[in-house]
Simulated scan of single mutants.
Amino acid sequence: MDKKFKALFKNSRINIQVWQHITTNHTLDMTWADGFIQKTEWLQYVGKDDVDGIEIYEGDVFTFEYFENPHKTIKMIGTFVYGEDLGFDIEIYNNDQYLILRYINNGIFKNFKVIGNINETSDIVEKFAENQ
């Protein structure tokens, strides 16, 4: 199965940013990129879509629900990071706490909703906290 990646490119001359998507089985055509500078590394698709069908990549910031037990659900904000053992971890920002959890698709993490990307809106975590 092909892996998917995306990277952010910016053209300061015309003040525009675009995400370019590729797969491991694709040759990148950069003929469109005159004047564009790559602003991020290539970020990998984590194999999960959010509740609206949007693919989630490393660096995407999302809200989600953590089911601590059958009677307690906690709404959190986080981002996927590539873990040391070739899997994905979730960096979680919750009530001034920062922690990393191993992501396992076992039902305790649900209702992912992409709300931005740390490469475009670095203050998104603070904005989310203000609106809670």
Rank of each mutant, 00 (worst) to 15 (best):
E58A: 02
I90C: 00
V81K: 07
N15T: 03
L101K: 09
E126Y: 11
F109M: 05
D34S: 14
N106A: 06
T27C: 08
N117A: 06
H21D: 06
D52W: 10
I16L: 11
E65R: 12
G116Y: 02
K127Y: 11
F128G: 02
A7K: 11
K4W: 10
I124M: 08
K48S: 07
I74T: 12
M1H: 12
T79C: 10
H26C: 14
I124H: 04
R102G: 02
F67V: 15
I90L: 00
I104M: 13
N11H: 03
L28T: 12
V61N: 04
I14T: 11
Y66K: 09
L101Q: 11
T23Y: 08
D2P: 15
N111E: 11
K39M: 14
T27N: 13
E68Y: 03
L101P: 01
N95I: 08
G116L: 06
D89W: 00
D34T: 14
K10W: 11
E55V: 01
W42F: 10
E126Q: 13
F109K: 02
P70I: 06
T31I: 11
M30S: 13
K72A: 06
S12N: 15
I124C: 03
F128T: 07
F112Y: 10
N11Y: 06
L86C: 09
F67L: 15
I118A: 00
N119M: 05
K10S: 11
I115F: 02
V61Y: 01
G107S: 05
I100S: 10
V46D: 00
E41L: 08
D52H: 12
I56C: 02
A33N: 08
N94L: 10
A129R: 14
H26E: 15
K39W: 04
D123Q: 12
D123Y: 10
K6S: 05
G47Y: 00
T121K: 13
Q38M: 08
G78W: 00
V46E: 00
G47K: 01
L86H: 10
I74A: 04
N111F: 07
M76T: 05
F62G: 04
V18L: 13
Q20C: 08
V18D: 11
G116T: 04
E55A: 13
F112M: 05
V125M: 09
T24V: 09
V61M: 09
T79E: 14
I16G: 00
V46W: 00
I54R: 12
L86K: 12
K113I: 01
N95T: 08
T73R: 15
I90T: 00
I108D: 10
Q132E: 15
L101G: 03
N105R: 03
D49R: 03
D85I: 03
G83N: 09
Y103R: 02
M30R: 15
G35R: 01
F5E: 07
I115N: 06
G83M: 02
K48G: 02
H71Q: 15
L43M: 11
E126G: 07
T23W: 06
D29N: 15
M1G: 13
F109N: 04
N69S: 14
A7P: 07
G116P: 05
E41W: 10
V125A: 05
G107R: 03
Q38W: 05
F67G: 12
T63Q: 09
Y98P: 04
Q20E: 12
G78T: 02
I100A: 05
D89G: 02
N11E: 09
G53R: 05
N95E: 13
P70M: 09
F5R: 07
W32R: 14
E91P: 06
K127N: 14
